[in-house]
Design a protein around this nucleic acid. Sequence first.
DNA 1: ATCTGCATGTAATGGGTTACATGATTTC
DNA 2: GAAATCATGTAACCCATTACATGCAGAT
Lengths: 177, 177
Amino acid sequence: MPKKRILPYIILGILDQNPGSTGKFITNQFKNEIGEFWKASHSQIYPELKKMVEDDWIKQTSDSNNEKEKYYHLTNLGKEKLNSWIDIPINALPVVEDLFSLKLFFIQDPNDPRISTLVNKQLNLLEKQLDHLNDREKILFDTQEKRNKNYGYYLILERAISRLDNQIKWLKTIKQR
Amino acid sequence: MPKKRILPYIILGILDQNPGSTGKFITNQFKNEIGEFWKASHSQIYPELKKMVEDDWIKQTSDSNNEKEKYYHLTNLGKEKLNSWIDIPINALPVVEDLFSLKLFFIQDPNDPRISTLVNKQLNLLEKQLDHLNDREKILFDTQEKRNKNYGYYLILERAISRLDNQIKWLKTIKQR
DNA sequence: ATCTGCATGTAATGGGTTACATGATTTC
DNA sequence: GAAATCATGTAACCCATTACATGCAGAT
């Protein structure tokens, strides 16, 4: 018995916000919007879409002008599934896989030179990502109106930024001990 | 080609810090110490230990007093593997799976009552965990000497606490918007 | 008309979770 | 010495990643 399936619910959520999305669009949502909180690649998404059509969670249409693209929409069943999923209480903490912290964990000596190598490299990585997210926020949510229109997205983008910021600040404190 | 194997390296790191550990002990390390940054269950760990013995990364001994327990130690090859792994630069950001943020993402209306339900529940969850980690820190690292002896562990425990703290503070700001 | 790229799809391989199973050791 | 617990081990099942594959669309 494998771990609980989350992917179809995320796809439902994306389709709820963007009716008529293509598989490609959904894939991109994972890269850009959701990537901070969940990962999925196109080779997971396409088969999942197929299965969701079979289960009548979504329906597929196509456009006579563009044969290769397929468009997906929620069914009523899909809407129900999405809403009841959102209402299921969350009992588990977020799961983090953080190689950096692991490696740090294995270095016991405070004077080990590998610490500062690791830290500097990680700082670099995180600062780039922070810049990227700050840019996105400026573009997407420069007005209150935009924020209110996609409130959930606004919130988690803020969350991602705050998280990165905290991480960077913490890393900088290590360097000064 | 599947995703990159991390587990054996983590086990190497645990055995480096705790020579002669049992599989059970390693399992508990994942629950207590490492759980904030990586997950693994005993049903992964035992087969992995077997494989690592076959590959001569670790060796296994036993105790005539207790037939059921097996004790593991690094080999020289294992030490090399561990050290070269630590030196591999990290190019990927930490991976987070956060159901809470996902669900939030799908709620677009700032006045949707489900937001505060979600937030309150999550706050509760995180605060419990923060208390738990704060307790651990007090017990394990109340003196500078203890900190210096297991510096890496001290750092990531601090990291975990800081992260939780940031998350909680951020959640509280949502409630006031 | 060919080339390039894009959207979709599939396969191979190994990872990971949950549940079940076994034998030793402690407990009462 | 029976019962409960503990440490270890195994199996079924699905998940996820990477690489490969196909066919249409647009560009030149």
